[in-house]
Simulated assay, not measured.
Amino acid sequence: MTADELRLLPRSEPEGKHSYLITDHHGGPASRLADVMEVIQLHMGNQLVDHASALLPDEPPGDLRYLAERLTEALRDALRIAESRGRRLSHPDGS
């Protein structure tokens, strides 16, 4: 199995390393769980963007830092999901 056949999961290790799913089953339990995680992460990212839009520029600097950190995390999650989905789209039959 090559790196192109691995599914990049919507989470990373505490050190920031990527996590991958090795499976021969499309739509298996682990893949479905990863799909759900991706949906949740994208939804949370959208909620953060809405929250940021409502708060800025009225929040004090400490609150802005916290918000910026959470937005950074949400963007990192969204980019990981996009990378994972892009890999799967380029190999839709698992080849």
Rank of each mutant, 00 (worst) to 15 (best):
P14M: 04
L79C: 08
L48D: 04
R85N: 03
H91E: 11
P14Q: 05
S53Q: 15
S53C: 12
H25E: 15
S84A: 15
R85A: 08
G86C: 05
S53T: 14
A68D: 00
D35S: 00
D93A: 08
L42R: 03
E13F: 00
I40M: 09
L67E: 05
E59G: 09
I40T: 08
T72Q: 04
A54F: 05
R76K: 10
R11F: 09
R11H: 09
S84C: 02
A52G: 08
D4R: 15
M37E: 15
S84Q: 06
G86S: 01
G28W: 07
G28L: 07
E69Q: 13
L75C: 00
M44N: 15
V39Q: 14
A52C: 05
T72V: 01
G16K: 02
E38T: 02
M44G: 02
V49N: 07
L67T: 11
P61H: 07
S84R: 10
S19I: 08
G62S: 15
R32W: 00
L56A: 15
L42Y: 06
R65L: 15
E5R: 15
R65K: 14
I81C: 04
S84T: 03
L75Q: 12
S95A: 10
T72I: 04
A78F: 04
M1G: 10
R76P: 06
L79V: 09
R65V: 15
L42E: 07
D35F: 10
H26D: 13
M1S: 10
M44C: 13
D63T: 10
R80L: 01
V49T: 14
L33M: 10
D63E: 15
A30E: 12
A30W: 03
S12L: 02
G16N: 04
D63L: 11
H91Y: 04
L64E: 11
E59A: 14
V36L: 15
M37W: 11
T23N: 00
R88L: 08
V36H: 14
S84N: 06
L6A: 14
E5W: 01
H51R: 15
T72H: 11
G28P: 00
L42W: 06
N46D: 14
M37V: 07
E5T: 09
Q41E: 12
M37N: 09
G27A: 04
K17V: 04
L56K: 14
G86V: 07
E59K: 13
H43K: 13
Y66C: 01
L33N: 13
A34D: 03
M37T: 13
D63W: 11
R76Q: 00
L71F: 01
L48E: 09
S84D: 09
D77Q: 10
D35Y: 06
R32Q: 13
R7S: 00
P14H: 02
S31F: 00
L55V: 07
A3E: 13
A78N: 03
S12A: 13
L71Q: 05
L71T: 05
G16W: 02
R32I: 03
P29T: 02
H51S: 12
G94I: 01
Y20A: 04
L42Q: 08
L79R: 12
L42D: 09
D93N: 11
S95K: 12
P60Y: 09
L55W: 10
R11I: 07
S31R: 11
L33Y: 13
R88D: 01
E5F: 11
